[in-house]
Each structure stands twice: as structure tokens, then as C-alpha cells.
Design a protein around this nucleic acid. Structure first.
Lengths: 94, 94
DNA sequence: ATCTATACCGGTATTACTATCGGTGCATGG
DNA sequence: CCATGCACCGATAGTAATACCGGTATAGAT
């Protein structure tokens, strides 16, 4: 009643966020990216796997900076997909 | 020892974040901005007053979107000034 | 003077995030 | 075969964020 549980929508958005970060990490070791960004490897792993739906702003900002991502683009990608695929290839199949 | 307490640096950054958001809100009522962004007025008030140092990424993104702010610029403004003045106008020209 | 709207504050309740620890699987190189 | 490095997972610990509920103050309008 006070701190409302995560909605399915928030959970889904968290998974999209994780997918975006993981793809941006590419081949770089998770350990290095995490330590270099100043976050715990476990935390980054949880975020990438979608087990943390609403991470803190500084945490995401540090990771995005480390990966060379724009926060605005990240937000647009995870909050915007009307019904699109944020998985791998947005416009390929059809 | 697990969820480390907020460092003075994080607290200071939180205060800078609050100042940035408050200035961007301008004359608009806090209540309207908060509800329109989908966050509780209490939460926005705490963030603006610096009492919440590390808000969630979705929360800040929603507020920034409502205020027309760029997340990248917000992050640059609050994470950059090592000991600088984020008070009124550090760099005006360019 | 009363009413309304806005903002600020302290306290409270509940969930969520962050981090450490121990164990497992898989690949690579000795 | 065994050691090393990286990743994944479950459980645990502890602080922090989110939200609601009063009460208070100020300014504007009726």
C-alpha cells in the first residue's frame, strides 16, 4: 500500500533495459565493465538479466557511460516500444 | 555492509539533481508535474529537496521527460562538477 | 474572515535495490 | 587430468526509495 510492488509493465521494461545493456556490452567481460563503472558485478548481472526492474539513476548512468550509451536513447528504447521488438532486429522479418 | 550507506558524495550529487529538476520545473505546480509524470508528489518533493539521493532511473526519466530535460545533460550537470558550482550558472556562453 | 490551492514537513509502512558469500557449469590452457 | 577465469544462480543482509497520512504555512479569491 505504500511502496507498491512492481507492475508487470515495469518488469517488462526492466527486461528490455537489461537486453539493451547486455547487447551494448558485446564482448567485453561483465566483470570489467562492472568494476570499471563502479558497480558490483552481481548488480550488473541482475540488471542485465532483468531481475532488477528499476535500478537507480546513478547506477544506470554509470553503466551507460561506460558502454558509451546515451541515456536518452536507452530510455527511448525501453519505454517507447509500442509493440515492437527490442530483442535483436526491430525491422527484419515482417 | 551489504547495501552501503550513501556516501557524502552521493548525497551532494542528489542535492545537485534536485536543484536541476526544481529549476527546470520553473513555475509549473509540483503537483501537476508529479502526477503528469506518473510519480507521487511526495517523491518529487523529496527528490527536489535532495532528500532522496539515488532515485530510480524510471522515476528520473519520467520527470525529465515531463520537464523536457535530456537525461544525458542532467547527468553531465550533476556528476561533472567535482567541487564546482552547480548553483546558478557555471557556463553560460557556448 | 473563510475557503481553496499549493507547498513543506515528520512519521510510518512496505517493497526494492545493492552487495557479499558460497556453490555450479563451461571453456581454455597448463 | 587439473587449474584458471568468466559467468550464472540462490540465499542472505542491510540500507534506501516509494507512497500514504496527518498537520502546518502562505497566498489569493470570495
Amino acid at each position: 500500500m505504500v511502496r507498491l510492488p512492481l507492475t508487470p509493465d515495469e518488469i517488462a521494461r526492466g527486461e528490455r533495459l537489461g537486453a539493451v545493456l547486455r547487447r551494448a556490452r558485446g564482448e567485453r567481460p561483465l566483470l570489467r565493465v562492472a568494476l570499471d563503472a563502479g558497480v558490483s558485478p552481481e548488480t550488473l548481472r541482475k540488471i542485465e538479466s532483468g531481475r532488477v526492474a528499476t535500478p537507480s539513476f546513478p547506477t544506470i548512468a554509470a553503466i551507460a557511460a561506460e558502454l558509451g550509451l546515451s541515456l536518452d536513447e536507452v530510455w527511448a528504447q525501453i519505454s517507447g516500444p509500442t509493440a515492437d521488438a527490442a530483442a535483436d532486429g526491430p525491422r527484419l522479418a515482417s
